[in-house]
């Protein structure tokens, strides 16, 4: 139906046209993160509604311990900073520095997840105990899933930012920038989650 003869010429035209566009992949990612944020917003709304209209049965009120989640908040905030360092280093072509910062960020992510699991095992309630418990595990679990994914992606880009044979360098920053934005997003969600779930 269609002729492909002029595809070469078109290809040339195409790249010319596209050069005039800025990079819109970041734009797409931001849109995706807004969508992802809406999922969390739905969970938060459900949690707050439950809290307002479905009081826990007598004797089921649990005080959440604060030390671990506070530590986790600090861990994530620090990891956002170290990720930022990694980006700066890569921009200056200091690939090995960048790699170190990335591994450190991933390490912080892993500690976060470990602490989270530790907290899970020491909580006095299980998933199906009551509405509060279920919502607690759903929210933190869904967030933990995001942290897990983020950590895996950080490890991948850390591997890719190696000096020889890596795909990341100061000319190709997008993967790092994308994961960094995602990581800040996950970080921000945690802060909201920490305030709503633990402090309120």
């Amino acid at each position: 139906m269609t002729t492909l003869d002029s595809s070469k010429e078109i290809q040339k035209n195409n790249s010319e046209v596209n050069e005039t566009h800025e990079d819109f992949r970041m734009f797409g990612l931001i849109t995706f993160l807004i969508a992802d944020g809406m999922t969390f917003a739905g969970f938060f709304a459900a949690y707050l509604t439950y809290k307002a209209v479905n009081p826990l049965p007598d004797g089921a009120i649990y005080e959440l311990e604060l030390p671990i989640p506070t530590l986790n908040t600090i861990l994530l905030l620090v990891s956002s900073a170290t990720f930022h360092k990694a980006g700066k280093a890569l921009l200056k072509d200091k690939n090995s520095d960048s790699q170190k910062w990335l591994f450190f960020t991933a390490f912080l992510g892993i500690i976060f997840l470990t602490c989270q699991l530790f907290e899970y095992f020491h909580l006095p309630f299980g998933l199906t105990d009551n509405l509060f418990a279920s919502t607690f595990y759903a929210l933190t679990g869904f967030h933990g899933l995001h942290v897990t994914l983020g950590t895996l992606m950080i490890l991948i880009i850390a591997w890719q930012s190696r000096i020889n044979g890596g795909r990341l360098n100061s000319q190709n920053m997008f993967p790092l920038e994308a994961v960094e934005l995602y990581w800040h997003f996950v970080d921000g969600i945690w802060v909201i989650l920490f305030i709503i779930l633990y402090l309120l």
């Binding site: 807004i34 969508a35 944020g37 809406m38 969970f43 759903a138």
Partner: peptide, 16 residues
Amino acid sequence: VLSTPVLAGTLILLSF
């Protein structure tokens, strides 16, 4: 983009 994720979250809770 603004509303479909809420449905997704809700259905995940329902499946739980």
